[in-house]
Nucleic acid binder design. Structure first.
Lengths: 209, 209
DNA sequence: ACTAATAGTACGATCGTTCGTACACTTTGC
DNA sequence: GCAAAGTGTACGAACGATCGTACTATTAGT
């Protein structure tokens, strides 16, 4: 059959693959990408170890696939809704607030997947680190672009540096994630929201006239 | 001999113990506290595995001792110099700028030890996570206190919320650390410095009169 | 029959941990 | 002063478990 859609075997394979990756992303968000183990995944999902292994061929490939899966989940949870907003400051708000909701709502049990995984894999060299760096770069670029658009629309002052503003907003969000995960401090999200609000209004054009 | 100082055995033991912990902190700052392995430490330091093990009795105890050692290094690098400054906004600046220098200068090869180690150990339960949480709490409290003092001195407006301001300053610092470690982005420290400067001057009393 | 997904088995390596032991040093009793 | 007893550090070997990976069946869908 030419149409791969209707091969039940492949469908079954895709389904278990998805299950593996969803579980892998959850585990990694708590224990890091090195906390992943093929044997443990197999036990958790009641699959044979070799069955899990066959899907990826190596642990590094499993880690990379996990990063891709987590990226997709993140995109669906944060990026897509924000891109549905109109460009400009509304989208900037949607991105940051969506991120905060994504972290607070524990889309991954360990909070933000990338924040959890960066420590422990972010300082090493190799394809895993590169993939993480690229995911980070894409997110930053998205935020910078959104800010730049808002400035073009006159919603931020001309003296606003998009990269700088994006850096600060992202910093607030990540700080809230860390505080929540490590200290169970739910107020951190309120602090972050407040900081974001104030920072955005501070960047509004001619606030003093 | 009553004076315990002169027991050559203990001195030797302390010296190797320090060497183990220094190396352990460096490794953990790159690979996380789970990346620590007794066997690897032994190999790196040309000590027997059991020799390393004997110093701690369990891996968890090694991890806890590593956290304590890293805390001491951090305190010496960041806290002590800042506490030597006069209380108030100068000390606030010294704390944050000292932290940035500590991160940029790679006192630990993986950047900030605690940032690196929190992902992967921060979301789990147990004594290791508790120790990390406590270290974080102490640092935050230090920063909040410094801000509160500055406000008492009239260096920040009365409407300044110390916890909020501390949260934001700390967020900038950590964001710079992450960007530097993950993307090799040295400009992040400049962004963070700028953000800190602006945020502090925004909190200065009556800036618009 | 052919193919794709999964299972089964086994491998070498490394993990944390537990032994018994050797050596260096200190303290004690004579 | 000097040997005996005690203490602390480090060693080497071995343990059971788990790791990633490599094979060869087996099962199920086309």
């Amino acid at each position: 059959m030419i149409d791969g859609q209707s091969d039940g075997r492949v469908q079954r394979g895709d389904s278990t693959r998805r299950a593996i990756l969803r579980r892998a992303a959850d585990i990694a968000s708590v224990e890091g990408l090195d906390g992943l183990s093929i044997g443990r995944l197999a036990t958790d999902l009641a699959i044979s170890k070799s069955g899990v292994f066959a899907h990826f061929g190596s642990k590094e490939e499993l880690q990379l696939a996990t990063i891709r899966a987590a990226t997709a989940i993140f995109t669906e949870a944060v990026v897509d809704p924000a891109m549905a907003e109109q460009a400009g400051v509304r989208r900037v708000r949607a991105l940051v607030n969506g991120w905060l909701k994504y972290s607070a709502g524990r889309v991954f049990p360990g909070g933000c997947f990338f924040a959890a995984v960066t420590g422990g894999s972010g300082a090493r060299e190799g394809r895993v680190r590169d993939a993480l760096a690229e995911a980070g770069t894409r997110w930053t670029a998205l935020l910078v672009t959104a800010v730049a658009e808002a400035r073009e629309f006159g919603q931020f002052g001309q003296d606003t540096d998009p990269a700088q503003l994006a850096f600060e907003l992202d910093a607030f969000a990540h700080a809230a994630n860390t505080a929540s995960v490590l200290h169970g401090d739910g107020d951190a999200y309120i602090k972050a929201s407040l900081a974001v609000m104030n920072r955005i209004s501070a960047a509004s054009p001619s606030p003093l006239i």
